[in-house]
Design a protein around this nucleic acid. Sequence first.
DNA 1: CATGAATGAGTCTTCATTCAT
DNA 2: AATGAATGAAGACTCATTCAT
Lengths: 194, 194, 194, 194
Amino acid sequence: MILQATQDLLLERGYYDTSMGEIAQRVGVAKGTLYQHFESKEALMIVLFKREFHDLQVAIEQIAHMQVGAQEKMTLMIDTLCYHIAEKHPLFFILRNASDLQAEIHYEIKETFNGMREQIALMLDEGKAEGIFNACLPTEVMLEALFGIIVSRLFKNFHEGLQVQYGDLVGHLRCIYFHGISAPTTTDESKLCP
Amino acid sequence: MILQATQDLLLERGYYDTSMGEIAQRVGVAKGTLYQHFESKEALMIVLFKREFHDLQVAIEQIAHMQVGAQEKMTLMIDTLCYHIAEKHPLFFILRNASDLQAEIHYEIKETFNGMREQIALMLDEGKAEGIFNACLPTEVMLEALFGIIVSRLFKNFHEGLQVQYGDLVGHLRCIYFHGISAPTTTDESKLCP
Amino acid sequence: MILQATQDLLLERGYYDTSMGEIAQRVGVAKGTLYQHFESKEALMIVLFKREFHDLQVAIEQIAHMQVGAQEKMTLMIDTLCYHIAEKHPLFFILRNASDLQAEIHYEIKETFNGMREQIALMLDEGKAEGIFNACLPTEVMLEALFGIIVSRLFKNFHEGLQVQYGDLVGHLRCIYFHGISAPTTTDESKLCP
Amino acid sequence: MILQATQDLLLERGYYDTSMGEIAQRVGVAKGTLYQHFESKEALMIVLFKREFHDLQVAIEQIAHMQVGAQEKMTLMIDTLCYHIAEKHPLFFILRNASDLQAEIHYEIKETFNGMREQIALMLDEGKAEGIFNACLPTEVMLEALFGIIVSRLFKNFHEGLQVQYGDLVGHLRCIYFHGISAPTTTDESKLCP
DNA sequence: CATGAATGAGTCTTCATTCAT
DNA sequence: AATGAATGAAGACTCATTCAT
């Protein structure tokens, strides 16, 4: 499958060092065949990223519609994100990292991406309403911090001999994030709004 | 100045979409002039990144040698990082993101970079020893979380109409990170090691 | 054919003044096409020279294995060399001349070239053993003299209005070379070893 | 001296790998200074070659005006040529070899060169008149054979461990050439005109 | 539909030459 | 006269894209 080969190559070499020729060679077809399926390199990437994010998008939507507290939703959220980023979709890392990716690609992905952001933003707002997340923190900042922590180099290096176990790593990140955004206790004034 | 123009272009277009021709054009000189000052595109980038990180490196070293507690050191650390990243050195963002940057560049920067990482790791370990940071979290994870949170897209978008004030943003990020990594209180068992 | 156009251009302008662009233009294709057939300019030249010398190499080998005297072998040798140099392979002239040709090219051709030199050296040694060539002359000197005389500018100018006929020219060169290296007669002491 | 440095560089690297920058650096002046003395790279080369050949030209003229037989003249001629080529003027080799040298250079040198050729041609004609050189050989062919033999790779390799002594080498080349062009004896019919 | 040779704009880099100081 | 930074045309090479078979 073209998309799979592209993904592999993307992870091995990065966007700019992956040529259409290499993709074709890897798939075992001619370059022309690629262009019969995808209008351009950009189009191929867009389809690839969209497909890759689709599962995640669905999972997030399911979580968003669950009838549980924000805390639990976000816990599932983080686990899901970690799962997709670490195990199945290291492309997430590329997408976030590749400030180089052509603007067109980012533009096309944005819609999908913004949908996910909004769903998570809602969860965070729910948490604030429930009083369990720190209402002083702007949701956007919390959101960015989430991605900052989760889309971590650690997952990229995961298979390259990191001594931490996957489950523990997820636990640590969840721990840091949750305590980072949790509402202040009565004895903790450092979290009050400025 | 060549370096300034290069930096601007790098932020606008990314490494691979910034050609020596464009840089020259932006500076207002001929391509050949660039090569009189920098042996190659790679060399130019290396000089650029090294220069940009030098101030930060010095600042971090000063903080590391202060005779104050880990909490205070890390507070200064975060402020310094934010200052350099947001105001002076958006290249930090590119460097962290550009997994595509040619290997040679990463190799050259690595030394500088690893020096900074080690200094911060020591601070975090001091904090663990003092009992104020969560000893259950591997230092490496804490370190990566710090960069994840601080080297934020938010700073990149800062001048593009983010409604949060700079001071507040730094405060929020500091807040999230510190609560994320702080040692568990007696009543909080969620931070205990797995 | 690319090789033919390259050869023509090489003869007109020399190696360094023949650009891939010009070759492409001469052939009537785009630069990229050249690179689809030859990995680099050097590779193109190597293929060109090797192809050109192949016939000559084969011819020389055939002569070397003939069951005739050294005199006859060398006669055929000279005729063959002249034929290839004058009519079919003016590249011989370039190769001998272009001290500027990149080292890689010379390196690649050397094997072929040395093979030819050795075969001819053996013929000359046979001639010395037969007593028909002057044993006082080092074989290497005889060899170099052969190439010096035969790989002549005269062949290069041949089609440019030299008044001598091809057959005569070959005859003259053969005459000079043979009398130059022939063994001394009893009455001729000027050829004795110093 | 600029010319000396240029000559050295030319011999080390060849024409196309010698840049004006390198010449300037070797001399210890700025590039601009070079252009104050020589209008262009070509002009520099022309002056260089002309200067280098001047001594040879003078020597040849002296020989030409001597009141001795052609045989003796040509003997001196060969010794002189060898001396200049081997010891003092390996540039001769470059000039003859560098079919790459820009046309302009060849054009400018030609005059000097043709002067020398003519003088030698006259000697050869004298020899034919005296009956000691083979009248069947066109003078032009004899001339070209002379240069072919003398401007030999052997002199280039001379300092690189050739086992033949300089004096012997000159002797051998002289031997080959003289016997090659000498007039036929009564018993030798192979030299008769076709 | 598949192919892959052909395309050509674009990239980095070099170097002879100029010119303000 | 000397300098050397600046110039820009030119060269080798790459690669996304097209199109005739």
